[in-house]
Design a protein around this nucleic acid. Structure first.
Length: 293
DNA sequence: ACTGGATCCTGCCTGC
DNA sequence: TGCAGGCAGGATCCAG
C-alpha cells in the first residue's frame, strides 16, 4: 500500500495509541522480515517510553526516550492495527478477537494499555534501530531527496536534478534521491495532472541554461496537490490494506489514471482513454491524448 | 555515472 | 473446479 500519504496516515493513526506509552514487551514472531531484525531488538526497546511518532519519506519513525529511533518501512504489503485494552468491539468484521494473532502478524508492540500489531504478508517491510543523533547519515536516509510537501521542493531544484538526464520522467520521479516519498500511484497521478508524458526524458524539462521549462513548473504543484489531497483523504486503500483503526482510506476514489485502463480521461475537453504501459518493470497509467508535454 | 532489469515474498485475479 | 501465470503500493543489488 504505502507511499507517503499512506505512511503519514499510519503515523497519524498510531500516534494516539503509542506516544507517551512504554513498550512493555516487543514480540517478534519470526526472526526477520526483508532483513533480520536488529540484534537483541526486543531487549533494546523493552521498558522504553515512546516519545513521538515521525515520518521521513516512506519511513515511519518511532522515537524512544533513550535517543534511539525504530525506523520502520512497510514495504509493499505492511499494515498496522491497534488493539486497545477494554475497548468496545468496533462494528464490522475486520477486528479479530482480542489476542488472536492473524496470519502474517510478525511484530507486536505490547504497550501499557493495548497492543500495536504489524502485519506484512509479503515481508518486504523491515525495522531497524538507529541512533537519532546523526540519523540523516544512516543508509536509509543518506541521499534522500526533499519531502514533496516541503518548501525545498521547487522547479529550480528539480531542474538541477533532471538536467541532462535521459531517464524517463516516470523513473526520475520514482527515484527517492530526487523526491522522497513518491511511489507508482502518485507519480502517475502527478504526471497526469501536469499533462506530462511519463516517457519523456527528464532532461527534456530543463533548458540548456539549466532553467526549468514550463512543464517542470507545472509539475511541482501537481505533486504537492496530489500528495496533500491524498493525506487529507486518509490515503488510498488498495486490495486488503486498511488504516490502523481498520477503516478504509478514500483517495483511491480520486485516482484519475491509476488502475483506470480503458476509462475516459477526466481532463475537461480531452476525449482520450487511459492506457497502461510498462516502464522499468512497473505499470504506468496515463492519457496518451493529453499527456504530451 | 547512469540506467534498466532482476530479486526478495505471498496473495489474488484472470484465463484456460 | 483446478491450476498456471501474471500482477501488485518498494528498495536494493548487479551488470552493461
Amino acid at each position: 500500500m504505502p507511499e507517503l500519504p499512506e505512511v503519514e496516515t499510519v503515523r497519524r493513526g498510531l500516534a494516539p495509541a503509542m506516544e507517551g506509552r512504554i513498550i512493555e514487551k516487543l514480540e517478534l514472531r519470526r526472526a526477520d522480515l526483508r532483513f533480520p531484525f536488529p540484534r537483541d531488538f526486543s531487549n533494546a526497546v523493552k521498558g522504553k517510553r515512546i516519545e513521538a511518532l515521525g515520518r521521513r519519506a516512506k519511513y515511519l519513525l518511532i522515537d524512544l526516550e533513550d535517543g534511539m529511533t525504530i525506523v520502520a518501512h512497510l514495504g509493499m504489503s505492511g499494515s498496522y492495527r491497534v488493539e486497545a485494552d477494554g475497548a468496545a468491539e468496533t462494528p464490522g468484521d475486520f477486528h479479530l478477537p482480542r489476542n488472536a494473532a492473524a496470519a502474517h502478524d510478525h511484530v507486536i508492540f505490547h504497550l501499557e494499555d493495548g497492543r500495536v500489531i504489524y502485519n506484512d504478508p509479503r515481508r518486504f517491510g523491515f525495522m531497524k534501530l538507529v541512533a537519532r543523533a546523526g540519523i540523516e547519515s544512516d543508509a536509509s536516509f543518506k541521499g534522500l531527496g526533499p519531502e514533496p510537501t516541503g518548501n525545498s521542493l521547487d522547479a529550480d531544484y528539480l531542474a538541477t536534478r533532471f538536467a541532462g538526464k535521459t531517464q524517463s520522467l516516470k523513473a526520475a520521479l520514482l527515484d527517492q534521491r530526487n523526491i522522497a516519498g513518491l511511489g507508482n500511484i502518485y507519480v502517475c497521478e502527478a504526471l497526469w495532472r501536469a499533462e506530462l508524458s511519463p516517457f519523456r526524458a527528464a532532461g527534456h524539462l530543463v533548458t540548456p541554461a539549466g532553467r526549468p521549462r514550463a512543464g517542470l513548473t507545472r509539475l511541482v504543484p501537481a505533486i504537492r496537490d496530489v500528495i496533500a489531497e491524498a493525506i487529507e483523504a486518509g490515503g488510498s486503500t488498495l486490495r486488503d490494506h486498511r488504516k490502523t483503526d481498520g477503516t478504509l482510506g478514500y483517495f483511491q476514489h480520486s485516482f484519475s489514471v491509476y488502475d483506470r485502463t480503458g476509462a475516459p480521461c477526466r481532463h475537461e475537453g480531452c476525449d482520450g482513454t487511459i492506457a497502461r504501459a510498462v516502464q522499468t518493470g512497473r505499470s504506468t497509467f496515463y492519457c496518451p491524448a493529453c499527456q504530451k508535454g
